[in-house]
Simulated assay, not measured.
Amino acid sequence: MTKVSVDPELCYGSGECMYRVPSVFTVADGFGSVIAGREDSGSEPEVREAAELCPSQAIVLGSQPA
């Protein structure tokens, strides 16, 4: 399983992630973030695509123990 997060130091608030996968991402205080409880949703192909297409490369995907 893959964990997803948004690096607040890199994000500049384009909202691209929220438009691509609104079930996982939101915009809070002008910056992208992961909806609470959705951090482990990184296995979805849409989340991987959102990470690849993030204009600031702020979406972080990482492995998590099973």
Rank of each mutant, 00 (worst) to 15 (best):
M1I: 05
M1K: 06
T2H: 00
K3L: 03
S5K: 00
S5Y: 01
S5D: 03
V6S: 07
V6A: 08
V6I: 13
P8I: 06
E9L: 11
L10V: 05
Y12G: 05
G13S: 05
S14M: 05
G15P: 10
E16I: 15
C17S: 11
C17D: 12
M18H: 15
Y19L: 15
R20Y: 02
R20V: 07
V21F: 02
V21I: 07
S23F: 12
V24E: 04
V24H: 03
F25D: 06
T26D: 09
V27L: 11
V27I: 15
A28D: 14
A28Y: 10
F31K: 15
S33E: 09
I35D: 03
A36R: 13
G37R: 06
G37T: 13
G37M: 06
D40S: 14
D40A: 05
D40H: 13
S41E: 15
S43P: 04
E44F: 00
E44Q: 02
E44I: 02
E46I: 01
E49V: 00
A51S: 10
E52T: 11
E52Q: 08
C54Q: 08
C54M: 06
C54P: 10
P55F: 01
P55G: 00
S56P: 14
S56Y: 07
Q57E: 11
Q57H: 12
Q57K: 13
A58D: 03
A58V: 09
A58I: 13
V60I: 12
V60S: 02
L61G: 08
L61M: 13
G62I: 00
S63G: 04
S63M: 04
S63W: 00
S63L: 11
Q64N: 04
Q64S: 05
Q64R: 03
Q64K: 00
Q64M: 02
P65Y: 01
P65D: 14
P65L: 07
A66L: 10
A66Q: 15
A66E: 12
